[in-house]
Design a protein around this nucleic acid. Structure first.
Lengths: 136, 136
DNA sequence: TATTGTTATACTCTATAACTATA
DNA sequence: TATAGTTATAGAGTATAACAATA
């Protein structure tokens, strides 16, 4: 299959999945992405988080503002360079993140559960590929 | 890898790709999705298109309205049941769709070109899997 | 001046609710 | 009444521009 067609099919299925995911989730995808990053890599600056998600710092500031209002993250000005603001997970943020992952209502996890082992393997490999594509 | 983690990673990379795709495209993902569907399956009703994209008919009506304003699709009331409106590609719509696919500036197609053949194969298989997941 | 971050504002996409026309 | 479609409105997510604080 020509790569242009693959790209096209990928775009379309991405849109469908994103809509499907948006529909029934407690935490939005972008919020989960930030919480996950903080959980995996520890406290980070606004810019660092923005770069990690390939998002503008202004957009990330807005996202962080929302998460802070919900008590899921805390802002702490860096002691060395006070222009920088370190963002870190609160206890509540970590708990909500883990609870979200555990949710048995998570239809996507269930859907993936329903795939055959070989198919799950393909999906895992594809995710690694997509991560590489996303940073190009 | 537990399927909950796969689901989580998939969510995150999806968000990143969607932002990346939104950045530098002539036609938005949802517009391409509609034009592609009309190209592949021929004229369809608003509801049919909405169902095909897992989108509300109201949202689809809005999308179609935009495409119509740009002259890419035409609305034609069905002759049998005049409540129904058939949507079809115009010549310009088909040309723009094809031209978009051909674009050598299409970074996604280029990125996929840069993958190894075996990796491209994995991606194609994964897309088929994602399509199945999207309709669950 | 350059850098980090935030606020203000606007645009895109999609949802729900309310409405019109046809069956 | 039920169905197909549309319009009005609202919300989420992210972008750009303008601004403030610190280096």
């Amino acid at each position: 299959m020509p790569t242009n067609d693959v790209a096209n099919d990928l775009r379309i299925v991405l849109g469908q999945l994103v809509r499907r995911l948006r529909a029934d989730d407690v935490l939005s995808t972008s919020h989960v992405a930030v919480l996950s990053s903080l959980d995996r890599l520890g406290a980070q600056t606004t810019s660092g988080l923005a770069a990690g998600q390939h998002m503008r710092p202004q957009s990330m500031a807005h996202t962080i503002g929302e998460l802070e209002k919900e008590g899921l993250v805390e802002r702490r000005p860096d002691s060395d360079d006070r222009r920088q603001v370190m963002v870190e997970l609160t206890k509540g943020g970590r708990e909500l993140l883990y609870e979200t992952r555990r949710r048995r209502e998570d239809w996507l996890a269930q859907a993936i559960d329903g795939l055959m082992p070989a198919e799950q393997k393909v999906l895992e490999q594809a995710i690694a590929l997509l991560e590489r594509l996303a940073v190009l």
